[in-house]
Design a protein around this nucleic acid. Structure first.
Lengths: 282, 282
DNA sequence: CAGAAAAATGAAATTTTATTTCATAATTAT
DNA sequence: ATAATTATGAAATAAAATTTCATTTTTCTG
């Protein structure tokens, strides 16, 4: 864990002198990494051994080791943390914040994914007779993106963002078909019903959703993507991006499973677009 | 600059003994940051002063300072690097690689974005009479996502992924309208034409594309998103995710510009979905 | 609220670590 | 081949960090 956050968190548990050190460190960490223990002690008006004890309390080997941790926190501490956009942020500030929280959430999502489930999903997808991707709202976009990827594999792919079409399609599914249902909340009634219908008709249902939700319960395989959605703006942001990254993972797994000959085919699909584009000069 | 890269770059200019140190450091930097100068000297089979001179050669104050730099390089250097998927990767490996390159590319994209252009785009978007988002293929998904976000702002938003509809819509545009054209390559003929048509009809054209492309030349404002797309799989991956993050940035800029009262309205839009969902138990 | 027990703190001593000095070895240029 | 230059390491010195231990402060108990 980031040592600066750790200091902040444990501030309450420190003794009076330790708190003095903590305050000096928090107020100008960049100075501290270039100070000796003597300089820091003087700055905080306490003795050198106190600084040393402070370092050990934070589970470091001593002062030099502490400085190392601090240096690392400063190097990547600020980025990739969920920072909230503020009313008075400049364009540069909110741009950075949004990109950084997106990255932080991708990191979170990656950690929450279970490789076994991914592997099983890829198994199932490669052997499917027909693939269907269903989502609504922001997840409809993810479903479309999945269609855009998987149709290149020369497999029948269906994608609907209309609940009636989804239902009819689910009812028409059969053994060997795979239905991927995408919903961040996992609570959208009509999508949960679609999952149930598909399952009742013997399709394999993969859910891209949060674990322990009504939707998750209806799925054969759950790919749970945890993100801490910033609800300040009441719009899905991180969740759909993490879902898209997961689609990339599934598509990649698919191509790897199919082997190298198969990949030549993908190149053909891409090359087919060439005439629709302006040439590059370089 | 990252000190590990610096060592690699200057490897040629080092003396025989210095190179020995460099090799030890490069082969296991994580061990080095926890070693004393004596331990490192022994490991490299050279003397302590040589290590010290090596450190100073790299513009650090001495060995401890060098370790600090090294620690910082390790903190933000290794992760989020574009690593390529390998034929024999396990599910866990390719999942990590894809998430990490996505993150690395978001970082790249963030750096390439120009805050001034973002600011101007937000200006233009908040003052628009009508917004249109056009894209094809993977970018069509980004356009749809933008529609999904901006329609919540109670502004007329159009989105087409049909080239004829796009053309007709562009021809019908007028001063005060904003047309956002999305294309990673910036070379898709029909989209460049749409941009030209919109411009000829006095709409403000914002291009989400790569700089110095035919599309970029037709735009009033260019939001250039640089990513190093992994072409191994012949599918758009990082580019569309970076574009989506940019849509988030624009939408956020929009809400910030409109002020806090406006945000209550967004909450209402979100709340309107409540009845379509299963309740949470917690 | 006294006074004992526990915890926190710092002065000084010690140890560890890093740096400088300087003599010697290796390399390069002439 | 040999002088000049550069690189290197042993030993000495300096700096920094840690330990020890006595003293102070705080907290608990009757």
């Amino acid at each position: 864990m980031n040592i600066l956050e750790k200091i902040t968190n444990e501030l309450e548990t420190f003794s009076k002198s330790e708190r003095k050190v903590a305050e000096v460190i928090l107020s100008s960490p960049n100075t501290v990494i270039h100070s000796s223990i003597a300089a820091l002690a003087k700055q905080a008006n306490i003795s050198e051994p106190t600084v040393n004890r402070f370092c050990r309390r934070l589970d470091t080997k001593g002062y030099p080791d502490f400085k190392l941790h601090l240096a690392q926190s400063l190097a990547n501490g600020t980025p990739y943390v969920n920072r909230h956009v503020d009313e008075n942020d400049t364009a540069e500030e909110y741009t950075s914040k949004i990109f950084e929280s997106t990255m932080a959430n991708l990191e979170l999502a990656r950690k929450s994914l279970d490789p076994t489930s991914i592997n099983r999903s890829v198994d199932v997808l490669t052997q499917a007779n027909k693939l269907s991707f269903f989502g609504l709202g922001a997840s409809a976009i993810v479903a479309r993106d999945a269609q855009n990827k998987f149709f290149r594999f020369n497999v029948p792919v269906i994608c609907f963002d209309d609940i009636l079409m989804q239902r009819m399609s689910a009812i028409n599914s059969r053994q060997g078909d795979v239905v991927v249902v995408i919903s961040h909340t996992g609570r959208t009634k009509s999508l949960v019903e679609v999952a149930t219908l598909a399952k009742e008709n013997d399709a394999t249902v993969i859910g891209i959703t949060t674990k322990d939700t009504p939707l998750a319960k209806e799925c054969s395989i759950v790919l749970s993507v945890d993100v801490s959605e910033d609800t300040d703006l009441y719009m899905p942001m991180a969740s759909r991006i993490a879902q898209l990254a997961l689609i990339d993972v599934l598509a990649t797994g698919f191509t790897l499973r199919r082997g190298s000959k198969f990949r030549d085919n993908l190149k053909k699909v891409k090359d087919s677009l060439r005439s629709s584009r302006f040439d590059r000069k370089d």
